[in-house]
Simulated scan of single mutants.
Amino acid sequence: MTVEYAGLGDWTVEALGEPGQVRPVVTAPHPVLGQAGVEVDPTDAEVVRLAADLVATMRVSPGCVGLAAPQIGVGAQVFAVDVTGHPKTVTVHGTFVLCNARIVEATRSRPGREGCMSVPDLTGDVKRASRLVVDGVLPGTGAPVRLVTDGFEARALQHEIDHCAGLLFLDRVAGAHAVYQRKVYL
């Protein structure tokens, strides 16, 4: 039975006693970024460690609101998201990690600017659903969840699900006219 994820507080793998390690982020054109990740057993100890590493790496990366396993060189369907405090955020579920996530409903498609730690020099305009229903599984517990969200958090989820499918935001832009050099602030 799938239960709706209703903000169980910040879900982190620290609650399971597994500290995360900061891992290096791979950048395009690394081959793992273009390959679909494999489905995982969310209760496997290696998956729990991977989830902890994703959260730890995301937390030390300025401006990062999501990180998928392929971005740290692991071809698996696992990602972390936390849009807390981002100015574009409407709905916030705190810090969470999902395994084997699938979009089951997507509506109200809108364009928006995206960037990515794995494509550090570019941003692009990508059309994404602004309301989303996602089914996934929590690592460690193996509990199935249904996440209903909108706005910026919905965009972040779609971006990370794309990573798990071997896609970058550059694969979703309308063309070269929708890709921009990232601004650097000194």
Score class of each variant (00 low, 15 high):
Thr2Gly: 04
Val3Ile: 14
Ala6Cys: 09
Ala6Trp: 01
Gly7Lys: 05
Leu8Thr: 02
Leu8Met: 08
Trp11Phe: 06
Ala15Ser: 14
Gly17Val: 06
Gln21Ala: 12
Pro24Phe: 15
Val25His: 04
Val25Leu: 11
Leu33Val: 00
Gly34Ala: 15
Ala36Gln: 13
Gly37His: 05
Val38Tyr: 10
Glu39His: 13
Pro42Phe: 07
Pro42His: 06
Asp44Ala: 10
Ala45Pro: 14
Ala45His: 14
Glu46Asn: 11
Glu46Pro: 04
Val47Glu: 12
Val47Met: 13
Val48Cys: 07
Val48Glu: 07
Val48Ser: 05
Asp53Val: 14
Asp53Met: 13
Asp53Lys: 05
Leu54Val: 06
Val55Thr: 15
Ala56Thr: 07
Ala56Lys: 12
Thr57Tyr: 11
Arg59Pro: 06
Val60Asp: 03
Pro62Ala: 10
Pro62Tyr: 05
Val65Leu: 02
Val65Asp: 00
Gly66Ile: 14
Leu67Trp: 01
Ala68Trp: 00
Ala68Cys: 12
Pro70Asp: 08
Ile72Gln: 11
Ile72Leu: 13
Ala76His: 03
Ala76Leu: 04
Ala76Pro: 04
Gln77Trp: 01
Ala80Leu: 12
Asp82Pro: 06
Asp82Thr: 15
Val83His: 02
Val83Phe: 06
Thr84Ile: 03
Thr84Ala: 11
Gly85Pro: 12
His86Pro: 07
Thr89Lys: 03
Thr89Trp: 00
Thr91Asp: 06
Thr91Met: 02
His93Phe: 01
Gly94Pro: 11
Thr95Lys: 05
Thr95His: 02
Phe96Cys: 09
Val97His: 03
Leu98Asp: 03
Cys99His: 11
Asn100Glu: 14
Asn100Ser: 11
Ala101Asn: 11
Arg102Val: 15
Val104Pro: 06
Val104Phe: 10
Glu105Cys: 07
Ala106Met: 08
Thr107Phe: 09
Arg108Glu: 15
Ser109Val: 15
Ser109Pro: 13
Arg110Cys: 13
Arg110Ser: 14
Pro111Tyr: 09
Pro111Ala: 08
Gly112Val: 07
Glu114Cys: 09
Cys116Arg: 08
Val119Thr: 10
Pro120Ser: 14
Asp121Ala: 14
Asp121Thr: 15
Gly124Lys: 08
Gly124Tyr: 09
Gly124Asn: 13
Lys127Met: 05
Arg128Asp: 10
Val134Ala: 03
Val137Pro: 06
Pro139Lys: 08
Thr141Ala: 04
Gly142Thr: 02
Ala143Lys: 15
Pro144Gln: 12
Val148Leu: 04
Val148Pro: 00
Thr149Ser: 01
Asp150Phe: 00
Gly151Asn: 08
Glu153Phe: 03
Ala154Val: 04
Ala154Leu: 01
Ala154Glu: 05
Ala154Asp: 01
Leu157Val: 03
Gln158Leu: 11
Gln158Tyr: 09
His159Cys: 04
His159Thr: 01
Ile161Phe: 00
Cys164Asn: 06
Cys164Ile: 01
Cys164Met: 03
Cys164His: 02
Leu167Phe: 05
Leu167Gln: 00
Leu168Met: 13
Asp171Cys: 10
Arg172Asn: 07
Arg172Ala: 10
Gly175Ile: 07
Ala176Asn: 09
Ala178Arg: 14
Ala178Asp: 14
Val179Gln: 05
Val179Asp: 06
Tyr180Arg: 15
Tyr180Leu: 13
Tyr185Glu: 02
Tyr185His: 06
Leu186His: 09
Leu186Met: 11
